[in-house]
């Protein structure tokens, strides 16, 4: 036990400041009222869905949960069920074999809901494109609010995309 405590003390606090939102990432006009967004922004539950990614984006979403980014300190947490989620964080081109599961997850997420597409594949289909096995970008299957390009995007870029989606400032137009 003493070793664990010593290691914790030695490590100290490593958390860094969160990035500001970036309006350029917004893919469509917000449908959610400003006051709801203000509420969500303080306690956001995210369900991550890998719809066909190479797993690179998942690694950076894992990294987003490391102590540097202090996600829970911002009120953001990842949940196990879409029924508990305010936001779907979707990676990958949507593999046709995942298309039904992604639609079911989206329908199971209570309204009002947000969708953030993560990575070049989620934004455009990326290197995999559209094919017999791939529907291409996430917006081809479900409505997308914010896109985060990158292959894979850094944890900071993903966090910026999430924060952009819940920023009340631009909400309501």
């Amino acid at each position: 036990m003493i070793r664990i405590l010593r290691q914790i003390a030695r490590t100290g606090l490593v958390s860094e400041a969160a990035p500001p939102p970036d309006e350029a990432l917004r893919a469509r006009a917000p449908e959610i009222q400003a006051e709801i967004l203000a509420l969500l922004g303080r306690a956001l539950a995210i369900r991550q869905v890998d719809a066909g990614s190479c797993n690179g984006c998942e690694l950076e979403i894992h990294a987003l949960n490391n102590p540097y980014y202090n996600l829970e300190g911002l009120g953001i947490r990842f949940v196990a069920s879409p029924r508990h989620a305010d936001m779907l964080l979707v990676t990958g081109p949507v593999a046709k074999n995942m298309e039904p599961a992604l639609r079911i997850a989206w329908e199971a997420t209570p309204d009002p809901k947000l969708v953030v597409a993560v990575g070049d594949c989620g934004c455009t289909g990326g290197i995999f494109g559209e094919s017999y096995a791939s529907c291409g970008k996430v917006a081809n299957v479900i409505p997308v609010d914010v896109t985060v390009p990158g292959c894979p995007p850094t944890p900071l870029a993903i966090l910026q995309g999430i924060l952009t989606a819940v920023t009340a400032r631009a909400a309501g137009g």
Binding site: G52, P93, A95, N97, M98, A101, F128, G129, S131
Partner: peptide, 11 residues
């Protein structure tokens, strides 16, 4: 398995 088959060999 096979859910994230995105046709890499063909691509």
């Amino acid at each position: 398995l096979g859910y994230v088959h995105k046709g890499i060999d063909k691509r």
